[in-house]
């Protein structure tokens, strides 16, 4: 049931004002986005059409706290098929950013570990200029599991066998002949100060929202 007195009619404008959210209001609810979605195939509750309609109606809290936001694979099938040129994939990305902001403000709680994952990924880029897989995992797993020890265990469960494969195939470590610690240590660019400046600028832009 929709409680009209709880709706936030300004919510759609929050999305419309963001890069990628511009065409939101063109949606006429045909559901092409959802019918072609590979995630909906696996998780029937996952419904980008519904998320868009709820956003247009102003169901701010329900949209931002919807756990399904975090299982989008960003494959852009919805975007490619939308007959109204709604950039559905980008709209969902904008909504995820707004959800993270709402969590920071204490309005909602995000259960999915995906924001932690994305943050850990981007931390390595900010620090080194390039993705550092091991650094990403070392930050992500302990945060996700809530303790260093549990994090190490979860990481081993997911990546021990994978790591050995990378080692024996010479993609990480000495066997590839590309250096003793290839792929084990981070690959760093020299202009790391520029990375710092980029992330600082993005942070400032976020504050303007």
């Amino acid at each position: 049931m929709i409680k009209t007195w709880e709706l936030d009619p300004n919510f759609k404008n929050e999305i419309l004002n963001e890069l990628g959210g511009e065409n939101l209001t063109a949606c006429y609810q045909c559901s092409t986005c959802t019918l072609g979605c590979p995630i909906t195939e696996l998780v029937p509750s996952y419904n980008p059409r519904k998320i868009i309609q709820m956003s247009l109606l102003g169901m701010r809290t329900e949209v931002l706290s919807n756990p399904d936001l975090w299982i989008c694979a960003i494959c852009q099938t919805c975007t490619a098929r939308c007959p109204q040129n709604v950039v559905v994939g980008d709209v969902l990305a904008v909504i995820r950013l707004l959800a993270e902001k709402a969590e920071e403000a204490g309005e909602i709680k995000i259960e999915s570990p995906r924001p932690l994952f994305e943050t850990a990924f981007l931390h390595t880029v900010e620090k080194y200029g390039r993705l550092y897989d091991i650094g990403l995992a070392m930050e992500y797993y302990p945060k996700r599991e809530g303790s260093f020890i549990k994090g190490q265990k979860a990481m081993m469960d997911d990546y021990m066998a994978f790591g050995m494969r990378m080692f024996f195939k010479g993609k990480m470590g000495p066997l590839g002949g590309h250096g003793l610690l290839k792929g084990v240590l981070p690959s760093k660019i020299k202009q790391r100060d520029v990375m710092k400046k980029i992330f600082k600028w993005v942070e400032e832009k976020e504050k303007e929202r």
Partner: peptide, 10 residues
């Protein structure tokens, strides 16, 4: 930024 940079400015 791969798929993990969701902020288009970034």
């Amino acid at each position: 930024g791969a798929a993990e940079a969701e902020d288009q400015n970034l």
